[in-house]
Design a protein around this nucleic acid. Sequence first.
DNA 1: TTTTTATGTTAACTTTTCTAACATCTGTTG
DNA 2: CAACAGATGTTAGAAAAGTTAACATAAAAA
Lengths: 133, 133
Amino acid sequence: MTYSDRKSMPLFPISIVTELTELTARQVRYYEEKGLVTPVRSKGNRRLFSFYDVDRLLEIKELIDQGVNLAGIKQVLKVKSEQQEPIKHKEEVTMREDISEKDLHKMLRRELIESGYLNHSSIVKGELSRFYH
Amino acid sequence: MTYSDRKSMPLFPISIVTELTELTARQVRYYEEKGLVTPVRSKGNRRLFSFYDVDRLLEIKELIDQGVNLAGIKQVLKVKSEQQEPIKHKEEVTMREDISEKDLHKMLRRELIESGYLNHSSIVKGELSRFYH
DNA sequence: TTTTTATGTTAACTTTTCTAACATCTGTTG
DNA sequence: CAACAGATGTTAGAAAAGTTAACATAAAAA
């Protein structure tokens, strides 16, 4: 199991995911059963979702809301992903093969400390007005 | 309960936090008891930590490693926070008073979809080399 | 030395999640 | 219409993870 970056780092339990996506746990599990998302499992068999997974579930939800059935969603996501990674640079693939989960947690720690992640709230600020009635 | 942005949005269970910080659950709970962090609680009384909390715990850990005791850490964090928010702009304070947890989850959803969050991996890439032996 | 601080360990209990089964609704198809 | 398939709800029982509280202990401070 290797995670290429924080997007695919398993962080969230299903309860948080249901709140973020407004999908039910039943739906999330069913979509996994159908191969639409593949959260990893904790030692104790609990699903752990990454940002990537959540993002994917949000896409799924939008398509569901548009009346697309699961088979259709599968296709849409497939097409999208093919479209998205046109060339794979060798460094970005092979370099990361054997990074352990622990190392990736270290990476996230480092990011939390050093990156701008904790300091750039401009997007939130900019989007805030949408949530005032 | 109002969270000003994603930094303070409660997302992680204690197990993930212990992995991210390499602190024990006992330590994390103790630091909470001493008022160093204040994770919110889920409906069922589980601690839920935000990125902000994790960041704070990482700072605490660094200070611990430097031999600072908890009383000292409390002071350091206090000074830092005072230093950090010199002026509070009215918009950034009062505008956000009544944002519900649900709204903030919507905000995170929006961010996940629209912001660059899911697309900027440059920091990870740049830091990657540190984890190769 | 005695006390305090910080952390480990354990026990009993509660919450959350898991799987699996069965129920139900809805849209499609014969 | 009737039957079926797809998608989701609901429930039960078991396992995992989290909670508090108590007691243990090593190291530092007094």
